[in-house]
Simulated scan of single mutants.
Amino acid sequence: MPLTNKEQTLIEDNLNAEYLCIRKYEQYAAMASDQNIKQVFTDLANKETQHANTLKGILNQNGVNPQNIFETYDKPQGDLSNIQNSLGITDAQLLNDALSTEKHVSSSYNNAVLESVDPNIRKQLQHIQQEEQGHAETLFNAMQSRGWYKVQ
């Protein structure tokens, strides 16, 4: 069954979000000062790359060759944690921004899941959405364990 126009648009939108996450998490891994937080961002960037590859695969299988300006860029090189002070950014802010991003991305996948006609595509999108929720949980736990997210 070919993709509907709506499915194609939703998948391309989510692909854009995945590339944004990859870029953001690679940059945050370079900027974070805490080694454990650097690793969290590195791990998330790798998982988001898997999601992007899945979405590209869906599009390719349906004859769509995605041309995405966000796919390639120059990755940050080395440890950039020294720029945190000059930018006024903390590890807590990096984690909080990433958590907000994951909330948005999960919501975007929710729309794609609900508006997908093809049950196989819907299942793949549901799987990615669950993983995105897991990413949010990882970020939440990293913040909460450091006292940066208070649940009252």
Rank of each mutant, 00 (worst) to 15 (best):
residue 102 E to M: 01
residue 28 Y to H: 14
residue 94 L to E: 09
residue 3 L to E: 07
residue 147 G to D: 02
residue 24 K to Y: 02
residue 148 W to G: 09
residue 139 L to E: 02
residue 63 G to S: 13
residue 74 D to A: 07
residue 23 R to D: 01
residue 97 D to P: 04
residue 118 D to M: 02
residue 22 I to R: 01
residue 44 L to I: 07
residue 58 I to P: 14
residue 82 N to G: 06
residue 18 E to R: 11
residue 2 P to Q: 07
residue 119 P to C: 08
residue 107 S to K: 11
residue 55 L to P: 12
residue 7 E to D: 02
residue 147 G to Q: 03
residue 145 S to C: 06
residue 60 N to D: 13
residue 61 Q to S: 15
residue 102 E to R: 01
residue 82 N to F: 08
residue 115 E to Y: 12
residue 2 P to D: 07
residue 105 V to G: 04
residue 116 S to H: 06
residue 138 T to R: 15
residue 19 Y to E: 03
residue 94 L to Q: 10
residue 106 S to T: 14
residue 93 Q to E: 15
residue 88 G to H: 05
residue 45 A to I: 00
residue 31 M to L: 14
residue 30 A to D: 10
residue 134 G to P: 02
residue 50 Q to R: 13
residue 69 I to P: 00
residue 102 E to F: 01
residue 125 L to C: 08
residue 15 L to C: 08
residue 7 E to P: 01
residue 134 G to C: 05
residue 116 S to T: 13
residue 91 D to I: 06
residue 112 A to F: 02
residue 47 K to V: 11
residue 22 I to C: 00
residue 106 S to L: 09
residue 17 A to L: 14
residue 91 D to S: 08
residue 36 N to L: 09
residue 26 E to G: 07
residue 115 E to P: 05
residue 48 E to I: 02
residue 66 P to R: 02
residue 146 R to D: 01
residue 43 D to S: 04
residue 132 E to T: 10
residue 85 N to R: 09
residue 6 K to H: 02
residue 144 Q to S: 15
residue 11 I to M: 12
residue 135 H to V: 00
residue 150 K to W: 05
residue 58 I to E: 07
residue 86 S to G: 04
residue 38 K to S: 10
residue 92 A to S: 14
residue 78 G to S: 05
residue 120 N to M: 02
residue 126 Q to Y: 07
residue 67 Q to F: 12
residue 43 D to R: 06
residue 71 E to D: 11
residue 117 V to C: 00
residue 44 L to S: 00
residue 84 Q to L: 11
residue 110 N to Y: 09
residue 76 P to D: 07
residue 21 C to S: 15
residue 24 K to V: 02
residue 149 Y to A: 14
residue 46 N to Y: 00
residue 149 Y to I: 08
residue 13 D to Q: 15
residue 69 I to H: 01
residue 45 A to P: 05
residue 41 F to N: 08
residue 19 Y to R: 06
residue 61 Q to H: 14
residue 112 A to N: 06
residue 82 N to Y: 06
residue 101 T to M: 01
residue 96 N to A: 14
residue 62 N to L: 05
residue 18 E to Q: 12
residue 58 I to C: 09
